[in-house]
Structures are given as C-alpha cells and as structure tokens.
Simulated assay, not measured.
Amino acid sequence: MIELNTPQGNYPVSAILFDKDGTLLQFVSLWGSWGECFLDQFARKLEQRGLSFPEQHRASLLGTVHDAAGKITDYDRNGPLAMGTMSDLYAIASWQGYSLGLSWAEAVELVDSCRNAADAMLEQSRPVRPLPGLVPFLDACAAQGIPMAVVTADETAAAESHLRWLGIHQYFTAVIGTDQVERGKPFPDMALLACGRLGVSPAEAAVIGDTNGDMRMAKAAGTAVAIGIAGGITAGLAADTRADGTLLPDADCIVSSYAELGVRRMVR
C-alpha cells in the first residue's frame, strides 16, 4: 500500500481515481474553446431562423464566465459545463431553442449541428494543456506502481482522445466515461466501476477532482479520501476555497496544485 501525502494529512491508498477536466487538463483550455464555438454556432443558427439568442443567457446556458469580448475565461464549478454530461448540455441548449420558438425536433437538430462544429474544431486545434505539476505527480505514482483510472462526466471515446492529446493516456489502467454507467456524478457508479477494473476496494482508493460532484461521488462510493484541486481557480478564490470549502464542501482536503501532493511506499 502507498501513502498519499497531503497538507492536511497522509492517507494509505492502493489506487487513485482522477477526474479529467479541471483535474488533469486545464478546463478552460479545452472547454472554453469548445464552449465559445458551440455558443457562436448556436447564436448564428438561431439568427438564420429569424430568432435572437439573448445575450444575458450566453453565460448562464452552460455556466461560463466571459470577458468583454465574449471569450470564456472561467467557469462555474457547480454548473452544467463542469458537472453535467454531454447529454445534459445538449438538453439544456435544446430547451433554450424550444423556448425561443423552435419545435423540439428543430431545436435538437440545431444543437446537434452546433455540437458537430465544436467537436470538429477541437479535433483540429486540440487546445489541451495539463495542470501544472501533473506529469511529475503521475510519474511519481507510476514509479510506485500505483494503479490509476480516470472517471469523467465526458464520454469515454472523447476522454481517451483528450488523454492522448496530452500524452498521458498510458498512465491509466482504466478510463470510465459517463456512457459506461447508469448514473454519473455525484452518484458512486463510476468510482465503483473504476475500482472494480483496478481490482481494489473503494475504501483503498483516493479520488482527486475539481468539483463538488467529484467529492460527493467519492463519499457515496466510500473511498479513502476525496481531494479537491483548486488549480484552475484564481489565486484569491483558491485561498477562499481552502479557508471555508465553499466550492468543495465535501472535500477531505483541498490543494492548489499537484506540487502539494506526494506518494511514498509505506514501510511495514
């Protein structure tokens, strides 16, 4: 068994489960690009049908933060883009189209075309960057022989592509997307399936994530520890989060970067 070292204490674990977006890769680098393309396409296609996408809904539709030029600079860690499945996002956008006057069928078709355009843009540009300190931490875990898995609200095929774009797919024994389970986060299904694939008890696994959905999944599955990583949050907000746990109230501990985590083999 390995000891996972955190600023708040040390935990004996046999495996580590990672969320993907905002935990392995920088959330805005990928989903900011995707969201901007999706929203631009959505507004343009509505306009072609004589409809207007209300500007005040641009941020609230997916749970994103925009600058004056409309560029996505941050995201709501308790919002649909951060915590929802892709099906959730498409349903939300389809409802918006329906509420503006499209039939449900027309709204679904419009959203699907926006999705295809945003997905194609990602495939071409591959705008992914790892969180600072991630690769050295994965190297340290691999050196200790710790089995690792990814548990993500994204679909499995897309998640595996993103891990390959980052060059880190080889670290993970299992990649569990929301399409492999009946219930996504915050339910325990993905964590339980990942532990089964790794051959470990949930009570011996750590979960690392950036949303409270990750933390609640960990608690529901009975894992050893739920670690919140605030690396994508601005410095001031990260300090506030560590102080009172506002954004991650169910975390056992919160770190600002992987530099605060370490692993070592336990001496018997």
Results as ranks from 00 to 15, higher is better:
I2M: 08
I2Y: 05
E3R: 11
P7T: 02
G9T: 03
N10F: 05
N10P: 06
Y11G: 04
V13T: 01
A15Q: 10
A15Y: 03
F18E: 13
F18T: 11
D19E: 07
D21W: 04
D21Q: 12
G22K: 02
T23P: 02
T23I: 03
L25F: 01
Q26M: 07
V28W: 00
S29G: 00
S29L: 00
S29P: 00
S29I: 00
W31Y: 06
S33R: 13
W34P: 09
W34L: 12
G35N: 07
C37L: 06
C37S: 13
F38W: 10
L39Y: 01
A43I: 11
R44Y: 09
K45E: 15
E55R: 11
H57S: 14
G63R: 05
T64D: 10
T64I: 15
T64N: 07
H66D: 03
A68E: 12
A68G: 08
K71I: 06
Y75Q: 02
D76W: 02
G79E: 13
G79F: 11
G84P: 11
T85N: 12
M86A: 10
M86C: 08
M86G: 15
D88R: 12
L89T: 05
L89I: 08
L89Q: 09
Y90M: 14
A91G: 01
I92E: 02
S94W: 04
S94P: 01
G97H: 08
L100C: 02
L102M: 00
L102P: 01
L102Y: 00
A105P: 04
E106V: 06
V108N: 01
D112A: 11
D112L: 08
C114I: 01
N116A: 13
A120T: 14
A120R: 10
M121K: 15
E123S: 12
Q124P: 07
S125H: 12
S125L: 11
V128N: 13
V128I: 14
